Amino acid sequence: MSASIPEVSIDQVPADAVLLDVREDDEWAAGRAPGAVHVPMTQLAERLDDIPDGNPVYVICRSGGRSARATAYLNQQGWDVVNVAGGMGGWARSGRPMEADGDAVPEVI
C-alpha cells in the first residue's frame, strides 16, 4: 500500500466518526456499522454526491483493500478521507457495534 494513503486502525476511529462503507449490497445487508453511509465502490464515481460530509470521512470495506483504493480516489477528487485498516472484519473482532438488515444477527461476509 502506498504511504500516501491516510490510514487509521479500528481503535483510532472515533465513536462519532462519519463512516463510508464501500462494500457490495450483500455485505452491507449482512452487517455494518450503525450510521454508516453505503456507497459500493463500483458506484463511487457516479455517486460522488452521496459521499457524506465529514472531516475526515472514514472509509471502510471488509478488510481494508477496497477502502484503500476508494480513499486514494476520493482524496484525488478533493475529499478529506481516511482508510480504516482491518475493515469490518477488524471492526467486528474489536467488539464495535454492528447492525444488519431485518432481525438477522450482524456478521461480516
Results as ranks from 00 to 15, higher is better:
residue 109 I to Y: 02
residue 35 G to F: 09
residue 56 P to N: 05
residue 19 L to H: 04
residue 9 S to K: 14
residue 36 A to V: 05
residue 88 M to D: 03
residue 8 V to D: 04
residue 86 G to V: 08
residue 36 A to D: 03
residue 99 E to T: 15
residue 4 S to V: 06
residue 27 E to F: 00
residue 53 D to E: 15
residue 18 V to G: 04
residue 32 R to N: 00
residue 109 I to K: 10
residue 67 S to Y: 10
residue 81 V to L: 04
residue 100 A to W: 12
residue 56 P to R: 06
residue 66 R to V: 01
residue 103 D to T: 14
residue 13 V to G: 02
residue 24 E to V: 03
residue 33 A to N: 05
residue 62 R to W: 05
residue 102 G to Q: 11
residue 23 R to I: 04
residue 10 I to N: 02
residue 19 L to C: 01
residue 106 P to M: 10
residue 3 A to Q: 12
residue 62 R to G: 00
residue 7 E to G: 01
residue 27 E to G: 03
residue 71 T to K: 08
residue 78 G to A: 13
residue 33 A to P: 10
residue 73 Y to V: 03
residue 12 Q to F: 00
residue 36 A to F: 01
residue 9 S to G: 12
residue 71 T to S: 02
residue 61 C to H: 11
residue 81 V to C: 03
residue 20 L to I: 05
residue 102 G to K: 09
residue 59 V to K: 02
residue 101 D to A: 14
residue 75 N to S: 09
residue 87 G to D: 13
residue 27 E to H: 04
residue 88 M to A: 10
residue 58 Y to D: 09
residue 16 D to A: 12
residue 108 V to S: 00
residue 13 V to S: 00
residue 32 R to V: 05
residue 1 M to T: 11
residue 93 R to H: 09
residue 80 D to G: 01
residue 102 G to W: 02
residue 40 P to T: 09
residue 14 P to A: 07
residue 81 V to K: 07
residue 92 A to D: 11
residue 39 V to A: 06
residue 25 D to Q: 14
residue 67 S to H: 10
residue 74 L to C: 05
residue 69 R to E: 15
residue 2 S to N: 15
residue 80 D to F: 05
residue 86 G to M: 09
residue 18 V to L: 00
residue 40 P to K: 09
residue 26 D to K: 08
residue 22 V to N: 00
residue 1 M to D: 11
residue 35 G to M: 11
residue 108 V to I: 12
residue 90 G to N: 09
residue 88 M to P: 00
residue 70 A to W: 09
residue 98 M to S: 04
residue 20 L to Q: 06
residue 39 V to K: 08
residue 69 R to D: 12
residue 77 Q to C: 07
residue 35 G to W: 12
residue 51 I to F: 00
residue 77 Q to M: 15
residue 107 E to H: 14
residue 91 W to P: 02
residue 51 I to G: 02
residue 108 V to E: 01
residue 5 I to L: 03
residue 106 P to T: 08
residue 27 E to A: 13
residue 61 C to K: 08
residue 59 V to H: 01
residue 83 N to Q: 06
residue 74 L to I: 06
residue 48 L to T: 05
residue 91 W to T: 06
residue 65 G to Q: 15
residue 81 V to E: 09
residue 104 A to R: 15
residue 4 S to T: 13
residue 34 P to F: 01
residue 35 G to Q: 09
residue 29 A to T: 10
residue 62 R to H: 14
residue 44 L to V: 08
residue 69 R to F: 01
residue 62 R to Q: 15
residue 1 M to Q: 10
residue 86 G to H: 06
residue 11 D to E: 15
residue 1 M to L: 13
residue 24 E to Q: 13
residue 74 L to G: 04
residue 98 M to E: 13
residue 26 D to E: 15
residue 58 Y to K: 07
residue 85 A to V: 10
residue 98 M to V: 02
residue 57 V to T: 14
residue 31 G to Q: 11
residue 88 M to N: 07
residue 107 E to L: 03
residue 34 P to Y: 11
residue 78 G to D: 14
residue 45 A to S: 13
residue 82 V to G: 02
residue 3 A to D: 15
residue 92 A to S: 14
residue 98 M to Y: 08
residue 81 V to R: 04
residue 20 L to T: 10
residue 25 D to V: 11
residue 51 I to T: 08
residue 89 G to V: 08
residue 49 D to M: 06
residue 86 G to E: 09
